[in-house]
Design a protein around this nucleic acid. Structure first.
Lengths: 153, 153
DNA sequence: CGCGACTGGTTGCATCATGCGACCATTGAA
DNA sequence: TTCAATGGTCGCATGATGCAACCAGTCGCG
């Protein structure tokens, strides 16, 4: 989005950015995923964004199916919860964080992701499904798949 | 960026988004990384974005150190090339693409990432550096690290 | 019950980012 | 020489974002 779309692009990354590419979107999802934030006012406080923008983003997330509104039984204030589709964005946020840690964190990592079971550092890897090897980013090629229409991306 | 910053956020994901979070930024980098696009007019044509915006993005990338301007010897038109810092964004783009493939590609994947050596599918995994296990997104916890200042993210 | 604080918004206005089309100097090819 | 492409810049219109004010309903406290 960012208010609009990337129409000309036949590309899943563009489709994803239409949903979560606007300003604040990924930070809202980060807080929901890893900070356990669920309520309107808590998002506004944590992030310091304007409340009308927050309302617009949350509406968009609900409409896109990455969050759902939920009223805990008995009472009073509603929660915004990530759906499976929303939680599936975790790798995106972790990839951004990894990059920021490496290239924009002179004082060390502010936040560390840990394996809940054993407490170890979480690392993101590209793996080849065929040969099982770990892959460096420059060993990745692209190929057009069945969802491609027309000639261009 | 998106024209401005996420000042209140002490978070590497926010730092990363300040560099590549603006509209079109990640698509430009995607084309540079996987499409081999290097020239101003080619970016403009592939993406269909306004040329003044493209100029602003490329300037920003050069300033941020994720691209560099390069004049091939002998002649005439310049190229924009990703630096190491820029190529390191590949996992972000692959993560976005994976998500888009899963949740927003009803006709199948338009673009497939392949291991250059063996041609196998590239898959992104979270791995525990301590125990070596593959980790599901909901098994990830966070911990504050040395770069954290103050109490909040 | 009364009161103040908090929640979950909405509205209007100002400002910044983005998009569009016109323009321009230089290079290259016919 | 002429025509098209490159790599931009400029000005204006429109859209997105940010800010402050406002509001109804709820909660906790005395």
């Amino acid at each position: 989005m960012l208010g609009n779309s990337y129409e000309g692009q036949v590309c899943s990354a563009a489709r994803a950015l239409e949903v979560v590419g606007e300003r604040w979107s990924l930070l809202i999802i980060r807080d929901a995923l890893f900070g356990g934030v669920t309520r309107f006012s808590d998002f506004a406080r944590c992030l310091g964004l304007a409340r009308n923008i927050l309302a617009a983003r949350l509406d968009g997330f609900v409409e896109a199916g990455i969050m759902e509104r939920f009223l805990p039984e008995g009472a009073a204030y509603q929660e915004y919860r990530l759906t499976r589709k929303g939680r599936d964005l975790a790798p995106v946020i972790i990839a951004l964080t990894d990059w920021g840690d490496r290239w924009a964190a002179p004082n060390g990592r502010p936040v560390i992701y840990r394996h809940a079971e054993c407490g170890g550092d979480v690392e993101q890897q590209l793996v080849c499904r065929a040969c099982g090897m770990a892959i460096e980013p420059d060993q990745v090629d692209i190929e057009l798949g069945p969802g491609m229409t027309g000639a261009a991306w």
